Simulated scan of single mutants.
Amino acid sequence: MKIHFNKIISYLLTGILGILGFSSCVGDEPDEYGTPTVDYVYKGKVTDEKDVPIQGIQVAADLKDPNDASIKKDTIYTDANGEFQKKITGLYTVKSATIKFSDVDGKQNGSFQDATITTEDLVKTKKRNGWYLGEFTFTANQKLKKK
Rank of each mutant, 00 (worst) to 15 (best):
K50N: 15
D68W: 01
E32K: 13
V52S: 08
A60M: 11
I57P: 04
L63W: 01
K50T: 14
L63R: 06
E49V: 06
V38E: 05
S24W: 04
D68I: 04
C25F: 10
K50Y: 09
S24A: 13
S70T: 13
K50S: 15
S70G: 14
D62Y: 06
V46E: 13
S24D: 08
D51G: 00
S23T: 15
G27N: 10
G44S: 04
A69M: 14
D65N: 15
G34E: 01
V26F: 09
K45F: 01
I54W: 06
E29A: 09
D28R: 10
P66M: 13
Q58L: 13
Q58T: 09
G56D: 15
Y42L: 11
P66E: 09
K50D: 15
S24Q: 12
Y40A: 07
A60G: 02
G21H: 03
Q58E: 15
Y40D: 04
T35G: 06
T37E: 06
D51P: 00
L63Q: 08
K50Q: 15
D48N: 15
V59L: 07
E32W: 00
E29G: 05
D48L: 11
P36S: 12
D39A: 04
Q58D: 12
Y33K: 12
G21S: 14
Q55L: 02
E49A: 13
D39H: 04
S70R: 11
K64A: 09
P30F: 00
V59N: 08
Y42G: 04
T37G: 00
P36C: 02
V38S: 06
D68R: 10
V41Y: 01
V46A: 10
K50R: 14
S24I: 07
T35A: 12
Y33R: 05
V52N: 14
V52D: 09
C25W: 07
D62P: 00
G21D: 01
K45S: 10
D65G: 03
V38G: 02
F22W: 07
Y42V: 08
D51W: 01
K50H: 13
F22N: 09
Q55I: 05
D39R: 07
V41H: 03
K45T: 15
P30W: 02
K45L: 13
V52R: 11
P30Q: 07
P66W: 05
N67H: 11
G27A: 13
V52A: 08
D62G: 09
V41D: 02
P36G: 03
I57E: 12
Y40M: 09
Q55S: 12
V52Y: 03
V46R: 10
D48F: 06
